[in-house]
Each structure stands twice: as structure tokens, then as C-alpha cells.
């Protein structure tokens, strides 16, 4: 997808699969990835098929990605933040027992 119209929103740099990706403030993670021409966000736990965002309103759960180490985050519902590390989710995602997701997290499930 590409940006149209006036594009003077402040920039935010996130990381996707280890590579820097420039987004705009107010973008959801899904919008930022789509703007970077990434359509496939994850593979499914059942068959390993590729999936990307479908509904863009938090209903379908097809845009799940790993954000700052936490899996199963809805890319369409979470806004980009400077320095955010986003990875494709592979299968069910590693729930990382012992990994704390609390404390200072600004995004909301």
C-alpha cells in the first residue's frame, strides 16, 4: 500500500524482522507494515499457511505479530511506538513462560 495525500505526520521508526521501518505517528502496527509493503504477517499454528491483516478492526485476529517479545498481539489495534520491535509470528507463538509482559507496557490487548 502507499501513502496518499498530505504526508507531514511525524515519523516513528520501528523494527520489523530486525530491519528499520519508518512509520507515521498514529499508525497502527498493521498500517505501518502495510505501508512497508509487507502483506504476510504470520504463519498459522494449524497448517503453517501465511496470513495478513483482514478486518483491520480487531475482530479477525489474523494480523497477530510478536511485539517486543510478546506474541499474539493484534497489529491492527496497537499503535506504533519509537523503537518497537515487531516480528512475524510463527505458528502459535512462543508464550515464553517466565517472560514478564507487565510493567510499563503501553499497548493494550
Amino acid at each position: 500500500m502507499r501513502r496518499i495525500g498530505r504526508d507531514d505526520a511525524p515519523q516513528v521508526t520501528i523494527e520489523f524482522e530486525g530491519e528499520p521501518l519508518t512509520a507515521r505517528r498514529g499508525d497502527s502496527v498493521a498500517a505501518a507494515l502495510l505501508a512497508g509493503n509487507h502483506r504476510s504477517f504470520r504463519t498459522t499454528p494449524v497448517s503453517g499457511a501465511a496470513r495478513g491483516p483482514f478486518c483491520m478492526m480487531g475482530s479477525c485476529f489474523d494480523c497477530l505479530v510478536e511485539i517486543d517479545g510478546a506474541p499474539n498481539r493484534q497489529a491492527c489495534m496497537i499503535e506504533v511506538r519509537e523503537g518497537m520491535r515487531v516480528r512475524r509470528q510463527r505458528g502459535a507463538g512462543d508464550i515464553g513462560l517466565g517472560h514478564s509482559t507487565g510493567g510499563g507496557r503501553e499497548d493494550t490487548p
Partner: peptide, 24 residues
């Protein structure tokens, strides 16, 4: 309908409104 690159029309409108993004 599950393939990446397939979205709802509402989804297309969401990113148009919120991020001025469109798919030529």
C-alpha cells in the same frame, strides 16, 4: 479468502481514514 493481500473493504477504508494508505 484467507490469503495475505485479501482484506475486507471496511479494512481498506480503515487504513485510508487512519493512515492515508491505499492499494493501487
Amino acid at each position: 479468502w484467507t490469503l495475505p493481500g485479501v482484506m475486507t473493504a471496511g479494512g481498506a477504508q480503515s487504513v485510508l481514514k487512519s493512515s492515508a494508505l491505499a492499494a493501487p
